[in-house]
Design a protein around this nucleic acid. Structure first.
Lengths: 140, 140
DNA sequence: TTCCTTGCAAATACTTTGCAGACTG
DNA sequence: CAGTCTGCAAAGTATTTGCAAGGAA
């Protein structure tokens, strides 16, 4: 499963599978929510995993480099969040302005738009971000 | 023009039109680009306008509160940018991954999508962000 | 046994806050 | 003249870097 393939991804880049990397991966896997570095840190502490905040930052960056994790910068959050890619399709998010809950939007409607933008701006589009915010059912 | 209407917006909320606020507004007006606080600060210094970085932050926040300025948090920039609203339509941006140039996209294709998302998620959508990045014509 | 990884301390970047003096209306 | 605004200093939050000790392969 995930840990095995990750181990390969790490080794292929001269890196190692360690206790802390396993713990971060397992947390992201079971949480299935985009977590910030400090959330990863405190949730691992509650689970009695000894880890340093600095190590969390280094770990998510490594996982991002080998393509296992995606970094999200949600509007006006002031911190980044990290989410397992885990073979899932590219997608976007909506966040509740009251309680902060984040829900996946399992769609991306921007293929055509990308072509249009390339034609208009002469840019070569490499990436995009799309995020919605509003009130979730519980907070309305 | 802008300064006059802004003065009204300020006064309506018990605020004042000052030398530094005029300078920030004038800069945003002639630059017509989303600028970060530190860019506003250094560009005003070059123009021999004495202003403190703290004042820049406070100023853009006031201008945001009275609806004159929009705050942008572009992906992985690590800082916010501020742009004059100036009666312009809601729009989005594309940024060059090499030189950092930011170009307006004078369109927003998300009206229908918003309805779809509200139906699917039961959220009430209040806001959204959309940003593209890629290579500009000069950097390709 | 190599050299990657970790923890700790410290540094850096961006932004906010407190306070006394300066300025607007 | 009242009350807002500014500069300076300091604090706060998110993230990165340096280095020596610990650990994976």
């Amino acid at each position: 499963m995930l840990e095995a393939t990750t181990g390969q991804g790490l080794r292929a880049t001269g890196r190692r599978m360690t206790r802390t990397r396993k713990a971060v991966l397992a947390l992201l896997e079971r949480t299935h929510q985009p977590l910030s570095a400090s959330e990863i840190f405190s949730q691992l502490q509650e689970a009695d995993v000894a880890i340093d905040l600095v190590t969390v930052y280094r770990t998510v960056n490594v996982l991002k480099e080998i393509g296992l994790v995606v970094q999200l910068d949600l509007h006006q959050e002031g911190q980044s969040r990290y989410e397992l890619k885990e073979g899932r399709k590219h997608h976007h998010h909506i966040r509740c302005q009251i309680c902060g809950k984040i829900v996946d939007l399992l769609l991306c409607p921007l293929k055509k738009l990308t072509k249009l933008i390339e034609a208009r701006t002469q840019f070569i589009v490499g990436d995009h971000t799309l995020e919605f915010s509003g009130l979730c059912p519980q907070c309305q």
